[in-house]
């Protein structure tokens, strides 16, 4: 198989991190490349590296410059040294990392009590609540990245017919709330201020500090929502 290494750019993120950037876009193939590189760079154990963090179409490598100071030659900065090391790794082809791709079924109750914004979405987009539920549960979403809050998953992409801009001002959101922002959908694992339009709530605990792996989702997961009743929610 011909492996073409996608085009990327490396730039500094202050003086303690660099970013590998594949362009400012939401794209499944690009995100898969990001996840493969995340696995590769995490396992590379580069000196001075504190952690590697993937996002939609870019990933950051955080490092502690004093640890790398002696390794570089005097003519170059720590950043340039790190950039070279990372560049050498990126020049090696890697297989698409399939290990993180699981299918998770997430029960969601879309009833009014748990969906403060579903009526407004229905009115704005001129679509019935039933159709919103049907469309939201019809797609299998990809978890592109985790961020914003511990365990918060950015998933995409929702049908254009239920896509809606986030609120201009954040409001208090209950843990488990399922929201839409643009073509993204996501679930608040913890109570938090937030601007996503809330259309339902899951009874599942998405972030459990007592667990060794506290977050339910991982980037790369596939997610299927299923609609449950208030009664099922209460007895979940």
């Amino acid at each position: 198989m011909n492996y073409v290494i996608p085009a990327y750019r490396i730039f500094p993120l202050g003086d303690t991190a660099l970013v590998i950037d594949y362009g400012n876009l939401v794209d499944e193939a690009v995100n898969k490349e990001v996840m493969s590189r995340f696995a590769q760079l995490k396992n590379a154990n580069l000196p001075g590296v504190i952690e590697v963090v993937p996002a939609y179409s870019s990933l950051a490598v955080y490092y502690h410059p004093p640890e790398v100071w002696k390794k570089r030659t005097r003519a170059m900065t720590v950043y340039e040294w790190m950039k070279d090391e990372v560049g050498q790794l990126l020049a090696q082809p890697v297989a698409n990392d399939q290990s993180t791709e699981r299918l998770l079924t997430i029960p969601v109750c879309y009833e009014d009590e748990f969906a403060p914004d579903i009526r407004a979405l229905s009115a704005t987009k001129n679509i019935s609540v039933e159709e919103i539920i049907q469309l939201h549960t019809a797609t299998t979403y990809r978890v592109y990245m985790l961020g914003f809050l511990p365990g918060f998953s950015y998933m995409g992409e929702v049908d254009e017919r239920i896509s809606i801009a986030r609120k201009p001002q954040p409001v208090n959101v209950t843990a488990g709330s399922v929201g839409i922002a643009g073509r993204q959908t996501g679930i608040y694992p913890l109570a938090s201020p937030g601007g996503w339009q809330i259309i339902g709530r899951t009874p599942l605990k998405l972030f459990d500090v007592k667990k060794e792996e506290p977050a339910l989702f991982k980037a790369g997961d596939k997610v299927q929502f299923i609609s449950i009743s208030k009664n099922e929610f209460a007895n979940y």
């Binding site: 993120l13 202050g14 303690t16 991190a17 970013v19 950037d21 400012n24 876009l25 939401v26 963090v53 996002a55 939609y56 179409s57 870019s58 990933l59 950051a60 955080y62 990245m145 961020g147 914003f148 950015y154």
Partner: peptide
């Protein structure tokens, strides 16, 4: 718009 991407202390 900037698609959600990494930030750092001091950004």
């Amino acid at each position: 718009e900037v698609i959600s991407s990494p930030v750092n202390f001091g950004t």
